[in-house]
């Protein structure tokens, strides 16, 4: 007897949204694991880059509860290695944007110490706020 995975309506809508935001056809991912294998951040992540691709493909919105998309720093290592020419960094950005556009910020300005506020290069601060605020 064959079993079929059926996406819920909400799941289909979620997949469509992430595909539109990222511009990537996520369903082309064949789960080879190259993105995960080369990711310099994977040991800090709760689920792997391949898993965020798979969960998104299946419309599983709980992918948004994972920390992986916030740990991804758009280093583009996966981008240049994907044999399907998919850009996982764009999928991470799309997932971040889904959350950030609900007006949820992932950075607290008060958490920056006085010492860091003086020493941090401006590009560090600007990029962190671009990535962690909506």
């Amino acid at each position: 007897m064959s079993k079929k995975i059926k996406l819920t309506d909400k799941g289909v809508e979620f997949l469509k949204k992430v595909q539109e935001l990222s511009g990537e056809i996520i369903t082309l991912c064949e789960q080879c694991g190259t993105c995960t294998g080369g990711c310099p951040y994977v040991d800090q992540m709760d689920i792997t880059p391949s898993q965020i691709m798979r969960k998104t493909m299946l419309g599983q919105t709980d992918v948004l509860d994972s920390q992986t998309m916030w740990i991804c720093a758009s280093c583009f290592t996966c981008t240049v290695r994907c044999p399907r020419m998919l850009d996982v960094s764009k999928v991470s950005e799309a997932l971040r944007q889904v959350k950030l556009r609900e007006a949820v910020d992932k950075i607290n300005i008060d958490g920056i110490s006085d010492e860091d506020a003086k020493e941090l290069p401006s590009i560090a601060v600007v990029s962190a706020f671009r990535k962690f605020t909506g």
Partner: peptide
């Protein structure tokens, strides 16, 4: 030589 240095995580996740 082309491994990411941690980038902007230096602002709020220094351990990385």
């Amino acid at each position: 030589k082309s491994r990411c240095c941690g980038s902007y995580h230096t602002v709020n996740n220094k351990d990385i």
